[in-house]
Design a protein around this nucleic acid. Sequence first.
DNA 1: CCTGACTACTGAAACGTTTCGGCCGTGCGG
DNA 2: CCGCACGGCCGAAACGTTTCAGTAGTCAGG
Lengths: 357, 357
Amino acid sequence: MMRKGKQDHTPKPVGLKDLARYLGLSTATISTVLSGAPAAGEIPAATRERIMAAAEKFKYRPNALARSLRGMRSHTVGVLVPEISEYGALVLGAVGDYLLSKGYFFFVATHRRKPELLDEYPQLMRQRSVEGFIVIETVLEKPLPLPTVVISGHRSHPGVTNIVLNHDHAAHLALEHLVQLGHERIAFIKGHPYSPDAETRWNSIERAAESLGVAIREELVVQLESDTFSPYVGYPLVRRLLQRTRDFTALFAYHDLSAIGALRALRDCGLRVPEDVSVIGFDDINSAAFQIPSLTTVRQPLDKMGALAGEILLQRIQGGADPVEVTVDPELVVRESTAPARRRIEIPAKLETVVGT
Amino acid sequence: MMRKGKQDHTPKPVGLKDLARYLGLSTATISTVLSGAPAAGEIPAATRERIMAAAEKFKYRPNALARSLRGMRSHTVGVLVPEISEYGALVLGAVGDYLLSKGYFFFVATHRRKPELLDEYPQLMRQRSVEGFIVIETVLEKPLPLPTVVISGHRSHPGVTNIVLNHDHAAHLALEHLVQLGHERIAFIKGHPYSPDAETRWNSIERAAESLGVAIREELVVQLESDTFSPYVGYPLVRRLLQRTRDFTALFAYHDLSAIGALRALRDCGLRVPEDVSVIGFDDINSAAFQIPSLTTVRQPLDKMGALAGEILLQRIQGGADPVEVTVDPELVVRESTAPARRRIEIPAKLETVVGT
DNA sequence: CCTGACTACTGAAACGTTTCGGCCGTGCGG
DNA sequence: CCGCACGGCCGAAACGTTTCAGTAGTCAGG
């Protein structure tokens, strides 16, 4: 079914001039009153009310473009995100709610990790007069030309505020949990080389491991490569790991996403979680709780981080405080995918196959 | 750590006037050339190149606000979405990619299903001169004052284009699959009363059921109520259902989300999927494939729907074709959560309890 | 030498606000 | 009756573009 052509073009919206003509006043006066400028105090209440009433009557809506052009304040910020994953969605939602509540709108651009897009979008946004940037899960090669708040970015630049998780704390929470359950041989999934969090978190894990007396064994560490943002990221990796060795009782994944893929890979290889292998994830995305078994994980307060990013950015835009780094704390969420380590069975080599079946 | 005050304010960007002064030309000429207006043909190549070179040299970037104000074209659209769920994220990503590729930017607002926000945001967006709206998964009470494309909205309004799944086809695919596996007693999770898709889909299910000779039993139908967008939506519902009766061999959920919750509820009640109960979802969100068991589902081509919405909206903005409804086709994705129905065990009533244990 | 056509531009208005300096009229003190 | 202060409002510029109607200058044709 089809309609033809353009429908009735919206009737030209009423502007300040129309009101001025109607009221027999100048646009200056009306603008002063309606925009609540301080000078509005000099206008007698009677006139003010006349103006209000007329504005109401004709449903006057100020044109934001003109206002921004004149005032050099656009009340708009740009949000840069690699893609809208479940992680990104949570942060984006929180950022958006905060900004909207403060009268700011925002442009979103997904740069898909392409350097040329990551270059271009901020430029385009600046042409559109955004007042600042929020950058999610993205490595910034150089600082942007406006106030910027980066979530999980991990790169110091002059003029950008980083919001980061306390990874030392996070790594410690997770490993401590495993150690308390008696795990000693722990496998790890490291993050993608391009993931800003990956390196930081890995360093934290190394530190935590050392302080807890856990050995990190080369042969039990695998690294994410593939670029999809489905749980499939973890799957082939863990399959390959299991082909090499099954000599571990716990797996600490980079992600909930990769942990979920790992769950599946373990099961497909005949291993039970958590009886044979404990799995712990990271992030606490919505679906983590609804895996079978439900996923033990380290929660990042993504909503808080998003709201915080919005708050700090607006502060900075208004020329306020200008923190270089803000740290938020993780939380360990224990569910079903972790359990006491299976007893290390000391078996004479010749019996091993028997027990293995 | 803190820095003080506002840092070096971005140096005033160069404008047309600056170029004009530098080149000894008028802003009119420069604008004509740089914006590629048809009249640029009248300017000799030598001058054109001089202008280009200067623009390049001073990194001239036209101010989009001024351009929009003058030209009454903002190259911006507004996107309205209840919240950024996994469903919304996929659509939003696709919409965004399409729009960005065509030089459009977009504002996103999450109305959280609050009527007052749903009223207010379109107004605010119009003040910001958006040229049209894309509305996702939202019931529109009245048409918006600009070209509008609605995804999964199901409400006819003059001037709005609906993009909808072929629900008849979808319902038929799903039920046919179950019937072919021998299922006769099928439980259903109906959508929330406020979900635009819910009613349409339910009607389709009724039609499909009739044409396939499947009886829909009142006592096997439950309806979503809660408003979270985690898989938890399905959980308590299915628990309650199971308390009433276990006399069904398959469950057709409204959602993948609710299906995932159902998986968990079934397992918690000691039922195996798919051996005891087959489960089929809807949407095919990313995590559907990575449940254990992986979820059989009816896929909605969300990315396609998003891109389509963008495409149609831009067409309409340019005064082009104006379809009232566009239908896209679902696809059945068979995974592990469905299997042949367990044999109906004909039991004398007196033995029932025994068998039940 | 005048006319007209063409080339290569320019001037200025317009888009819808905000804002600052100024202006007019009234009332009061002197 | 004059001057001044003040209340109440207005004019116009400015924000950075686009675009339309010109207009100087050149050149060919008559």
